[in-house]
Computed example of a mutant assay.
Amino acid sequence: MITTTATVKTPRSRNRRPDQSLTAPALPAELDTLLRRMRMPYLRAAAPDVLVTAKAQRWDPAEVLRVLLAEEVLGRDNAGRRIRRKAANLPTGKSFATWNNQQSCIPEATQQGLATLEWISRAENLTIAGPSGTGKSHFVEALAHTAIDQDLRVAWFTLETLTATVGKAKADGSVARTVARICRADLIVVDDIGMLPAGADAAEAFYRVVDAAYERRSIAVTSNIHPSGFDTIMPKTIATATVDRLLHHAHVITTKGDSHRLQQALAGHGTQPLTT
């Protein structure tokens, strides 16, 4: 299920935010100790300003309590997103803020539909195949950032890092636990399949994750070859079984055109001018 971020309403007073111009005395030591023991750091940080403003503007006690609890909830939500973003190991920080939907060859309606993330709530997959530089990784990373902003968990791999992760687990006999941990994420991304030849170990690692996630979690794959051609870069038997599960509930997109990176470089936008 997709969890949307609740909008925190502010007090219905003329001054909606605590008045920073008022001097906020420190909390009484006993109250400060209680808030520390209850592990409410965001409420504790906001309380001095909120209380002095509430007193000056004669807020209703229930409104004071609501605003303080809302500060704690908002702080925890933001902290959780920071933790999930760090754990996701996203590569470059590219989001929809830097995405040019008109420049992309992906139909705009498709972009908008995928950006709702409803497909993740249905445990559907996404594959984007096409030449290098056509925005595949950028678009999927933007989707991943959006998912984290909606309190979903994301795990990002290249085929090489996924192979290394599962290979390390094979060495100590923890493959099942490792694959189960990966599949705790709501969205699992495997980026740039096909850039390098994939041997049996890579094919096995990819299959294990796709099989474990099948109809339970969403997998997004980017590749410079269509999934139907994965048997050209990995053993055919395991490639067939993997693609069968991957594409059963999948949105399949093919990109085309010249590399955006190369176009930017040729136009002189790839670097900033040197200064002397």
Rank of each mutant, 00 (worst) to 15 (best):
A79L: 07
C105S: 15
H226F: 02
T237Q: 11
L196Y: 02
R58H: 12
E71R: 13
N224C: 09
V67G: 01
R177I: 07
P18S: 00
P61F: 01
A250R: 00
L247E: 09
D192C: 07
T161Y: 02
L34E: 00
R14V: 15
H260K: 00
N15G: 03
S13C: 09
M234R: 04
I182N: 09
E108L: 15
A265M: 12
P41V: 01
A6T: 14
G130L: 13
E108N: 12
T146C: 10
R153T: 15
K168R: 15
N100H: 07
A202D: 01
R39V: 06
Q264K: 13
E108K: 14
D192H: 09
R122S: 13
R245I: 03
I106A: 08
A241Y: 08
C105L: 14
R14K: 14
F157R: 06
S223P: 08
V64E: 06
H248Q: 09
R44E: 11
D172A: 09
T276D: 13
R85I: 03
A164K: 14
L152T: 10
D231S: 14
G268L: 01
Y214C: 07
E124M: 13
V243Q: 02
T255K: 01
H226D: 11
T33E: 06
G75D: 09
C105R: 15
A239W: 06
F157G: 03
E204Q: 12
A24W: 05
D244K: 07
A241C: 10
M195N: 07
L274K: 10
K168P: 02
L65I: 11
H249E: 04
R122C: 10
W99M: 04
A212I: 00
M195W: 04
V190Y: 03
P197H: 00
S104D: 06
E63R: 08
E71C: 10
R177N: 13
D77Q: 14
A129V: 12
P273E: 08
L152S: 15
D149C: 00
Y207G: 01
T276I: 09
T7C: 01
E71T: 01
D191S: 04
K236D: 09
P48A: 06
T127E: 11
E204F: 05
Q112E: 14
C183W: 08
G173W: 11
L34Q: 04
A56G: 03
A56Q: 11
G229Q: 12
H251Y: 11
A24D: 05
A70Q: 07
A45T: 11
V140A: 12
V243E: 03
P28G: 05
I120C: 11
A267P: 02
V50S: 06
E72P: 02
A109Q: 14
A46P: 08
S174F: 01
V189P: 02
V243H: 05
T165C: 14
H145C: 07
G93Q: 03
Y207W: 06
E124T: 09
D231Q: 13
R12L: 12
H248W: 02
T240N: 08
D186A: 04
P227S: 03
H269E: 11
A164F: 09
T110M: 09
I233S: 02
A202W: 00
T158V: 07
P227K: 04
A213M: 00
M195G: 01
I233P: 04
G268N: 02
T255R: 05
E160Y: 10
C105A: 15
A62M: 09
H251V: 12
A171P: 00
P91G: 05
H248S: 07
R17N: 09
G229V: 04
E160G: 08
M195E: 07
S21R: 14
S174H: 03
R245D: 05
